[in-house]
C-alpha cells in the first residue's frame, strides 16, 4: 500500500497512468456499491449493464453513426473556434482602440451562459449541422479570445527589449518573443474551449438533431433506458478526458520552464 502511494506521488508517465487507473477503479467500485443499494434500475444501473449496453450499441451500428455525427461536428466547430479565437485575440492585443471598444462586450459575453440561446439558434438555423456548428463556436470561442489577448499582452518587456537590441523587426519580435510567450496561455484557453465545446455539442444535439451522442442520450432517456444513457455519457466523458490530457501535455511541452 505504501509502495503504491509512493508510486502515485512520482512525476512519471507510469505514475500518471496509474493515478488514472486507480481513480477509475475507485469510481467503478463506488458505482457498483451504490447500485447494489439503489435497486431501481430506472434510476441507476451497475457498470456491467452499461458495458453490455455499449457493446450492443456498437453491434447495431448506432454507436458508429452517433460517434461520426458528434465527433465531426464538434471537431470542425472546435477547430474553427480556435482559429477565430486566436485571430480575434490577436486583433484585440494589437489594437488598443479595438480592445477598449469591443473588449467589454466580449468580456460580458464570456460570462453570459450563451448555451441558453440554443433553442434560438435552432429556430434560426434548423435541425442539423449548421445549428450545432454555430452553437459550439459561440460557447467555445471566448476562452480562446480571452487567453490569447492576455497571453500576448503579458509578454515580458525585458525579452522584447533584448530582441530590439539585436535589431529585431516588429515581425521578428512577434514570432520569436510575443507569440511563443503567449502560446502556453493560448493552449490553456484551448483546453477550456474543448470542454465547453462538448457541452455545446450535447445541448445542440438535445434540441435539434437526429444523430449524435446528445441525441442518443435524449432518445434513450425517453425510453427509460438508463444503461444506454450512461453508456453515451461515458463516451462523452472519454472525449473530454482525452482532450484535457492532450492539451495539458501540450501546455507542459510548450512551457517547461513554468513547472519548476
Amino acid at each position: 500500500m505504501r509502495r503504491l502511494y509512493e508510486l502515485l506521488e512520482q512525476d512519471t508517465r507510469t505514475a500518471g497512468l496509474t493515478r488514472v487507473a486507480v481513480s477509475t477503479v475507485a469510481v467503478l467500485v463506488v458505482w457498483q456499491l451504490v447500485s447494489m443499494v439503489v435497486t431501481n434500475r430506472l434510476l441507476l444501473v451497475p457498470p456491467a449493464e452499461v458495458a453490455v449496453a455499449l457493446v450492443k450499441e456498437v453491434e447495431t451500428g448506432a454507436m458508429w453513426t452517433n460517434a461520426v455525427a458528434t465527433v465531426t461536428a464538434v471537431t470542425t466547430s472546435f477547430v474553427v473556434s480556435v482559429a477565430i479565437g486566436i485571430a480575434v485575440g490577436l486583433a484585440l492585443a494589437s489594437s488598443q482602440a479595438l480592445s477598449l471598444t469591443a473588449g467589454p462586450v466580449l468580456g460580458a459575453l464570456n460570462s453570459v451562459p450563451i448555451i441558453a440561446l440554443a433553442p434560438l439558434f435552432i429556430s434560426w438555423l434548423g435541425l442539423g449541422f449548421a445549428s450545432k456548428f454555430v452553437l459550439v463556436i459561440m460557447v467555445a470561442v471566448f476562452p480562446v479570445v480571452v487567453t490569447t489577448e492576455a497571453g500576448l499582452r503579458a509578454t515580458d518587456r525585458q525579452l522584447v527589449e533584448a530582441a530590439r537590441s539585436f535589431n529585431a523587426t516588429r515581425l521578428q519580435i512577434f514570432t520569436t518573443v510575443t507569440f511563443p510567450y503567449a502560446l502556453p496561455f493560448i493552449v490553456s484557453g484551448i483546453r477550456v474551449a474543448w470542454a465547453r465545446a462538448l457541452v455545446g455539442i450535447v445541448v445542440a444535439e438535445f434540441f435539434g438533431s437526429f444523430a449524435g451522442f446528445g441525441f442518443a442520450i435524449l432518445a434513450a432517456s425517453q425510453t427509460f433506458d438508463t444503461a444506454r444513457v450512461l453508456g453515451y455519457v461515458i463516451m462523452l466523458g472519454a472525449m473530454g478526458l482525452i482532450g484535457s490530457v492532450l492539451f495539458a501535455a501540450l501546455e507542459r511541452r510548450l512551457a517547461p520552464w513554468r513547472q519548476e
Binding site: 525585458q158 525579452l159 533584448a162 539585436f166 511563443p180 510548450l254
Partner: peptide, 25 residues
C-alpha cells in the same frame, strides 16, 4: 550588443539557440 541586467534569455530556447539568437535575427 547589450548584456542585460536581469534574465533576458528566451526561456523556451536552449542555451545554444539563445546564444545564436542575435545571429538568427
Amino acid at each position: 550588443a547589450v548584456v542585460f541586467q536581469q534574465d533576458s534569455l528566451l526561456p523556451w530556447k536552449t542555451v545554444i539557440d539563445n546564444v545564436a539568437y542575435g545571429l538568427t535575427l
